[in-house]
Design a binder for these strands. Structure first.
Lengths: 161, 161
DNA sequence: ATCCAGTTTAAAATCATTCTAAAGAGCCTT
DNA sequence: AAGGCTCTTTAGAATGATTTTAAACTGGAT
């Protein structure tokens, strides 16, 4: 199902400069990685070539591994995970978590939202009135909205590191 | 075309019309379970007594098991999970998923949100402008907002169940 | 080239959650 | 009260995405 993809063909020429205003336009992928504080290894370059070409899409560690194999390369699954996390930490990717594993069950069935502090794994209720969604999109054709979850990720103001 | 959501009246969920009885009357617990189509077993009654007393709090399967043990009872972990899911399905609890396990990595680092259809595990981008957060709460003291995730859970209009 | 901290690797470990099949319990009908 | 049928519970095994481990490897500064 995955289209064949030659990582050497990937250019950044048409990439939207909409990413990070503080990131200067990098000459190549290796430079992007260096700016992120990551050594441009064969594995990271392969993944960067696949993901940082300006296309907007969603991948899982698994689907990405398939693409890498389809490109005639190989990267161990541990490294795929590490790289994905490193790229995310560097702001090159965004992590979206959907459902699955490790849920909290809230005895408050009224609609409300949450602060989440990752450091201490703390979840705090937000009174419903404190979050006002002025506009929501229509659900895709044939669908209806079942629920809206707003999770506001927070962190300590003073950088702990 | 689907009716647009009412921007002012933020009524987001369409959960089952479950009443939020704040009165922890033990006699009512069995009735609550029956109304939810669940046999009032010893295990379910124990969990209901702990969770459906009107207090608003967050529990995990693990923390709940601890409470059960602390109350001098015993419920197997499989049943704790089953019961939590059944209560959630019945609208007596709400499931909140925070992070962990099974993430998607989004090559779009611009701020945007997502539709998520659980049935087919489909994730669809929502253009940023389609979700308007008119008001956000202040982060708790000493904290700052790192990110805001809005996940709109959708389902097919024709109830497949 | 050399060296070493940073990386990658395969395999094992983690861990919340789900599944399995066998035993047990609710509850409706006699 | 007993029978019986179904729904529930249970212990333990299975699942599956992710992380960790310890050893082998590599990029790049000296």
């Amino acid at each position: 199902m995955t289209a064949h993809f030659d990582p050497t063909m990937v250019k950044l020429t048409e990439q939207k400069p909409s990413q990070n205003t503080k990131t200067p336009e990098p000459a190549n992928l290796a430079e992007i990685l260096r700016l992120a504080g990551l050594r441009p290894t064969r594995q990271r370059l392969a993944i960067a070539a696949l993901l940082l070409d300006g296309r907007h899409r969603h991948v899982t560690a698994d689907s990405l591994t398939e693409e890498i194999v389809a490109a005639g390369l190989y990267v161990s699954s541990g490294t795929v995970y590490n790289t994905l996390n490193q790229f995310t930490h560097a702001g090159l990717l965004r992590r979206v978590v959907i459902h699955n594993e490790y849920s909290l069950f809230d005895t408050n069935t009224d609609h409300h939202h949450h602060f989440y502090e990752a450091e201490n794994d703390q979840l705090v209720d937000i009174p419903n009135d404190d979050v006002v969604l002025a506009q929501l999109p229509n659900a895709p054709a044939g669908h209806e909205i079942k629920a809206v979850d707003v999770i506001i990720h927070i962190r300590h103001k003073t950088a702990p590191k």
